[in-house]
């Protein structure tokens, strides 16, 4: 596989053309707006939790992820694959997956832990991207928005994300 094809795998190209979870919905429990500073690409992402945690179930479940944005094939595909991967999972599991995806993105193409391999599913397709530090920001844009939106939702902050004037 050429280095180019190792980045733009068929799975990634499919998701870039047909992104999952794209299109904002209401209501939401947390919203985040993130920008990739190098290209100005933006993503707005909303999460819905099923219920606050209680004694029987110590973690809320992420019942829905919806996002919108514009960006390169990598950022769009990553947000799409992330949405499929995390929707419906308990929040603490989503946080684990975020940490594992970060580990993959830091790997610079080196072999990753079994935990990463076992957990990330289709998101492992971004292993090729990890060898290009300039593109890692593209792949993590959606994940950054997810992490931020989740932390707001867990803090009970359902306010719209702040967007700079004139954008």
């Amino acid at each position: 596989m050429s280095s180019l094809d190792s980045i733009y795998q068929e799975l990634i190209m499919d998701h870039a053309r047909h992104p999952q979870g794209k299109g904002l919905t209401e209501p939401f429990d947390g919203e985040s707006f993130q920008v990739n500073p190098t290209c100005g690409d933006q993503v707005r992402l909303r999460v819905v939790l099923d219920a606050p945690p209680d004694a029987d179930r110590p973690s809320s479940r992420l019942s829905q992820v919806a996002w919108d944005g514009k960006g390169c094939a990598i950022s769009q595909a990553s947000a799409s694959i992330m949405t499929e991967l995390v929707a419906g999972l308990p929040v603490d599991r989503v946080e684990q997956l975020d940490a594992l995806f970060s580990e993959l993105m830091r790997s610079r193409g080196a072999p990753v832990s079994a935990a990463v391999e076992d957990a990330l599913g289709d998101a492992l397709a971004f292993a090729g991207v990890s060898r290009y530090p300039m593109r890692v920001k593209c792949a993590i844009l959606g994940w950054m928005a997810l992490k931020d939106a989740l932390s707001k939702a867990l803090a009970g902050d359902a306010s719209p994300a702040r967007v700079p004037e004139g954008i």
């Binding site: 180019l4 733009y8 290209c39 690409d41 390169c72 094939a73 990598i74 593109r135």
Partner: peptide, 12 residues
């Protein structure tokens, strides 16, 4: 084609 993708292609 997004510029990042175009740049990646050209770099190759």
């Amino acid at each position: 084609v997004h510029p990042h993708d175009a740049g990646q292609f050209l770099d190759d």
